[in-house]
């Protein structure tokens, strides 16, 4: 579904990604773990061309993602993204946040878009907040609306860029629950996360990134219980020490 090959990206002198290969199969959930600045976000952002890699190719469902405007918009519409700070549109209600793209991009009829949006808001448990503006949503409600907004386009895959790292600890669980539910329904997901518990339970595969490379990848139990390299071991012990 998502095929990244030989991706490199630098910002000035800083190497963000160095020759990264990653394949996410249809229905697969891959969680990227690793220290801050290891390139997890940049890798995610390459998938929907928010960053353009200096080298390498990105394929989505067999089709290459390349420069041109109409193509890139079409590709982006097929990949949902949930941002670290959710980036909800503050001038629109929860419902309008969800219906905006389907009506504009897909030309959906307003009533149909609202119906679908209500269904999605109900699915993530915030149907009663339909007419509320993002400022008035609680920390745990924002990511849910952001997830509903992304799902409204009927994406083939979802990207999550550390969706719980800006949340109060007590909100984290309920958001991860929504994500786990989505994973259970067979959504293809690529998730950057610091939540090792989530990675262990919901991921089919975990990829450990450090200094712009994928250092180790594999099923969660082998990554967490039988880490091979020293860098992964050191990272896991630091993460464990924090809990």
């Amino acid at each position: 579904m998502i095929e990244l090959k030989g991706i490199s990206k630098r910002f000035g002198d800083v190497v963000a990604l160095e020759n990264v290969d990653l394949h996410v199969a249809k229905g697969e959930v891959v969680v990227l773990i690793g220290p801050s600045g290891s390139g997890k976000s940049t890798l995610l952002r390459c998938v929907n061309a928010l960053e353009v890699p200096d080298a390498g190719t990105v394929h989505l469902d067999g089709e290459p993602i390349v420069g041109g405007a109409p193509d890139i918009d079409r590709h982006r519409a097929e990949v949902g993204m949930v941002f670290q700070h959710f980036n909800l549109f503050p001038h629109k209600t929860a419902l309008e946040n969800v219906t905006l793209a389907p009506t504009l991009v897909r030309g959906a009829d307003a009533a149909a878009a609202r119906g679908k949006a209500m269904e999605l808001l109900a699915r993530v448990g915030v149907a009663d907040k339909r007419d509320v503006y993002p400022d008035m949503l609680s920390g745990g409600q924002k990511p849910r609306v952001a997830i509903a907004r992304a799902l409204a386009m009927g994406p083939k895959a979802m990207l999550f860029d550390e969706p719980t790292s800006a949340l109060d600890p007590e909100m984290v669980g309920e958001v991860l629950e929504v994500m786990a539910q989505l994973a259970g329904e067979g959504m293809t997901m690529l998730v950057a996360s610091h939540e090792m518990g989530f990675a262990r339970e919901a991921a089919h595969r975990v990829a450990f990134m450090d200094a712009g490379r994928i250092v180790e990848a594999g099923p969660p139990d082998s990554i967490f219980d039988r880490p091979a390299g020293n860098r992964l071991k050191a990272f896991l012990s630091r993460v464990d020490a924090r809990r």
Partner: peptide
Amino acid sequence: VDRGQFEAARSLGLSRRRTMRHVVFPQ
């Protein structure tokens, strides 16, 4: 207007022009 607003709209498939008109300008 926060850059994240622009990125969120683009990530949903909105063109540059529509992003400006429906997301950036109103704010």
